[in-house]
Nucleic acid binder design. Structure first.
Length: 450
RNA sequence: GUGUCCAUAGCUUAAUGGUAAAGCUCCGCUCUGUGGCAGCGGCUAUGAGGGUUCGAUUCCCUCUGGACACCCCA
């Protein structure tokens, strides 16, 4: 497990740096995050998924048990620390373990099955950062717990596909799919023992990592990228030939249903995924350009996990997608997202009496759904108008001592450079009229996003 | 965890073993009640620590951070 202190203390001096691999999401990028969350929520609701948030940290065992002690995630990528009573806690590296823990703990098996949940949460992995990979990153994910049927897998994959389409990046990715069988004696265990036998005596030809994998995690031998290991992997027994009757039929149906749904896929027998809990279906959406960090989305079926975590035997399937990677792709493709932050009106004031009037006027404008900003800290009209220009507002309202005295206000059309004088009491009404079909930002609790 | 490259102002870049330069931005003024343009002025920097040296921003070491790849994954 990663020791959180092995990188020393933060920099001294008059400037703070960020810890390695974390980043600030600035307003321009948040436009993308907001949009993605909106799409996810929309598609989730359409299919009856309901949102869940599990804690940022859990007892370390939750992940060690669910993800698998010998996986890379658990053995070297977790943010693990002790609390004041010496209990080992870990920042969540993925979303399924916590969700399953919650399913069991809250007796969700008493709800109508399958239980369909989704999440949009930050996750943490202690890993060397690079393109599309950070130590804190956001994922949205979907889990369908409580029933087993290829149609559920198909529907879930279709949902994953639909969301990437909505986000405009579907064309960049292609679905890779495989079945890694189940724990039935005749299925994966049989395959594993034959796989071990195949590698028996061939250890010399393997890389250091793979030498240990033979014992700890033989499945991963199949997707080692090193040349020599790959040659052996080609010759090794194929899971496809070992699937039990049930798994074989399950997978066949799934592929058939995907065709029915019009989802393109590539069968990839070396796709095994780095988490131990998967059974039967595994899939990832890969960058067609075949770069590094090419998966934006991955998941699969995990029929054994709920039982492994202490619940009743319960089948389930799920996936998660990396939001930063999607944003990267959207930016690269120059995909624009709807901007909801554009301002409608700038309020400029001249003199203390006018400033007082402006304070209340701004409040009224905002209550009416007109997105309003001012520069109450600036005194010169020049500086204020320059500000108005910077914010690209269509209109500026100007109130000075003359206007206070006459109970009026000036409304300036910033594009045309023309302006007119209106009665102070009618400003809000007048502004609404001028903004016309602009979407006003009225408050409705159901629409609050965060 | 491994490898390669990198770190000068808010941003982009320049220069030097001997007082660090510019463009853009920001703020102000010209213009004391009207933005975009122009002119002028101002603020702000050698990531941190140590070493070599008369002197280090420059050379060396360590740390921290950044970029990319490997491993692995979202």
């Amino acid at each position: 497990m990663a020791d959180m202190q092995d990188e020393g203390e933060m920099t001294t001096g008059n400037m703070f740096q960020r810890p390695k691999g974390v980043h600030d999401i600035l307003p321009d990028t948040h436009e993308y995050f907001t949009f993605i969350k909106k799409v996810v929520r929309h598609r989730a609701r359409q299919s009856g998924f309901r949102r869940i948030s599990t804690p940022i940290f859990e007892f370390t065992d939750v992940f060690a048990r669910a993800v698998g002690a010998d996986t890379d995630i658990v053995s070297k990528e977790m943010y693990t620390f002790q609390d004041r009573k010496g209990r080992s806690l870990t920042l969540k590296p993925e979303g399924t373990a916590g969700t399953v823990r919650a399913y069991i703990q809250h007796n969700m098996h008493t709800l109508a099955q399958p239980v369909e949940l989704y999440y949009i949460e930050p996750h943490f992995r202690y890993d060397r950062p690079q393109k599309g990979r950070f130590r804190q990153f956001w994922q949205y994910g979907f889990e369908v717990i409580g029933e087993s049927d290829p149609a559920l897998d198909a529907q879930l994959i279709y949902l994953a596909q639909t969301i990437t389409e909505d986000l405009g990046v579907a064309g960049l990715f292609k679905l890779q799919i495989n079945s890694i069988g189940c724990m039935n004696e005749k299925c994966r265990p049989h395959f594993m023992s034959d796989l071990k036998n195949f590698y028996f005596g061939k250890e010399r030809s393997l890389c250091a990592d793979c030498k240990t994998r033979v014992e700890t995690n033989p499945l991963r031998l199949l997707d080692c990228k090193l040349e020599d290991c790959r040659i052996l992997a080609e010759l090794a027994p194929k899971m496809k030939d070992y699937l039990c009757e049930e798994c074989r039929e399950f997978h066949k149906q799934l592929l058939d249903l995907l065709k029915e749904l019009g989802v393109e896929y590539v069968e990839n027998s070396s796709l095994v995924r780095g988490l131990d809990y998967y059974t039967k279906t595994v899939f990832e959406f890969w960058d067609r350009a075949l770069g590094a960090q090419n998966a934006i989305c991955g998941g699969g079926r995990y029929d054994g996990l709920i039982e492994l975590m202490g619940g009743a035997p319960t089948p389930a399937v799920g996936f998660a997608a990396g939001i930063e990677r999607i944003v990267d792709n959207m930016k690269r493709e120059k995909i624009r997202v709807p901007k909801k932050d554009d301002l409608h009106v700038f309020v400029a004031q001249l003199g203390y009496e006018a400033k007082k009037k402006c304070l209340t006027l701004m409040t009224k404008l905002r209550e009416a759904g007109i997105k309003t900003i001012g520069a109450l800290g600036k005194d010169s009209i020049k500086a204020q108008l320059r500000h108005a220009d910077r914010f690209q507002v269509p209109y500026t309202i100007i109130i000075g001592i003359t206007e206070v005295r006459d109970k009026t206000a000036i409304i300036r059309d910033m594009k045309r450079g023309s302006q007119e004088i209106v009665a102070y009491g009618k400003v809000v009404e007048e502004m609404k009229k001028m903004l016309g079909k602009e979407r006003l930002d009225t408050y409705s609790p159901g629409e609050v996003l965060y």
